[in-house]
Amino acid sequence: MAKSILTVDDSASIRQMVSFTLKGAGYSVTEAVDGKQGLEKAKSGRFDLVLTDQNMPNMDGLTLIKSLRALPAYSRTPILVLTTEAGAAMKQQGKAAGATGWLVKPFDPQKLIDVVKKVIG
């Protein structure tokens, strides 16, 4: 069965690109427009991986990660932050929130697939 991925981003174009790329690689992908919706969708479904943007309306990525980690179902699910910035401070915050890793934007589709493969196979 295809691994399912939740992608959370407020930009429709990025979301579509991520979704299309991963679907093409054989994953099943669910989209959410912000952290709030991401959390709702995560609660109502099961995902093997969560990809989230950091800066979004309503709920940002770090808050989403923290909220997910508080849920038993997502205490171990890999979560990657898509970020435009990869300094130590970001890493610290991301790590503290409970993210599994990060991916710097912009990225090319192949890189995304590589990383996702690395994480969930």
């Binding site: 990657l80 990869a86 890493k91 991301g94 790590k95 993210a99 599994t100 890793g101 990060w102 991916l103 710097v104 990225f107 890189k111 990383v115 994480v119």
Partner: peptide, 10 residues
């Protein structure tokens, strides 16, 4: 790995 623009905390 960071050259590649991503990384893992774990």
């Amino acid at each position: 790995e960071e050259e590649q623009g991503y990384g893992f905390f774990v």
